[in-house]
């Protein structure tokens, strides 16, 4: 997996991520130019005006034009960064929520210290859920009486999505604030209890990646890691069927939930790495 991650930005496999990366590069070039300019001036001034025999300070220095130009330059660049980059990107990320008919809808529910992923199943509808039904065997608290929820698929720490299809995540949390972070997707959003927050993204290539928690959520914050697989539509469909509740319901709830998901992951369908050599 290491070839996705290094000392720079993680590899980007989302449709919107390139614009964010571009912005990060542009700002850093701007910052570097400004800083190096300042720094050279600083060093030059320190050498030129060092105290030495025969050198005296000048009381009255004529007013410079440079600072005014610098201020205007910085202000203009900030306007460009805001209007040219940040606003349009945010508009794309926050406002242009994909059409529900085309997108795959998923509920993601954070808890100390795992990610519960809830797929609506073949009927495309999420079953009712409530806090009082949240038990070891039923991490998202599906109402057992609700027929719509019968075909819903629930996984723990394992999120699979199809490539080239928008995914609309309804993000929430059971207990404390978490932050749903998909490094390769340039997605990060706080999961706040009591709120359901829409997040969307679309993957451009398949592969196995990870979900991280970016907000301190307690002593297990460091291990709140989930697996994030981007699969071809066929593989994804197969995977979803393999997780369908017929097989899962008899599963004994005695097995500690996170452990179970780790076991499942090791046998999970391995997506073909189309671009990166494995």
């Amino acid at each position: 997996m290491n070839h996705y991650y290094g000392w720079g930005l993680p590899v980007n496999i989302s449709t919107h991520g390139a614009a964010i990366d571009h912005l990060i590069y542009v700002i850093h070039i701007f910052m570097a130019v400004l800083f190096i300019g300042w720094f050279i001036f600083l060093i030059y001034a320190l050498i030129k005006f060092r105290s030495r025999d025969g050198h005296k300070a000048i009381y009255d220095i004529n007013h410079f034009k440079v600072p005014t130009y610098l201020e205007v330059f910085v202000a203009l660049l900030e306007v460009v960064l805001l209007v040219g980059f940040s606003f349009p990107i945010m508009n794309q990320v926050r406002q242009q929520i994909p059409d529900k008919s085309k997108a795959l809808e998923v509920r993601v529910l954070g808890e100390q210290f795992a990610w519960n992923i809830h797929y609506p199943g073949p009927d495309g509808l999420f079953g009712k859920s409530a806090p009082e039904f949240m038990k070891p065997g039923s991490p998202v608290g599906l109402d057992p009486e609700d027929p719509i929820g019968k075909d819903d698929v629930v996984t723990i720490n394992q999120m699979n999505i199809p490539v080239h299809r928008p995914v609309l995540v309804h993000l929430s949390s059971k207990d404390v604030i978490h932050s749903f972070f998909l490094p390769v997707m340039r997605v990060k959003q706080d999961a706040i209890p009591g709120q359901s927050i829409p997040v969307w993204f679309e993957a451009t290539q398949t592969g196995k990646f990870e979900i991280a928690c970016a907000q301190l959520c307690g002593l297990g914050h460091y291990r709140m890691r989930g697996f994030f697989n981007v699969q071809s539509p066929e593989d994804f469909a197969k995977w979803l069927v393999s997780k369908a509740p017929k097989k899962r319901i008899p599963a004994t709830p005695r097995v500690p939930a996170p452990l179970k998901s780790f076991v499942e992951d090791s046998t999970a369908t391995v997506a073909s790495h189309t671009t990166a050599p494995s």
Binding site: I20, L23, S86, V187, K188
Partner: peptide, 14 residues
């Protein structure tokens, strides 16, 4: 600066 721009902050936050 990059933290003050929401778009770049998505990746850099926290």
């Amino acid at each position: 600066l990059p933290l003050g721009l929401t778009a770049a902050d998505i990746h850099l936050h926290d």
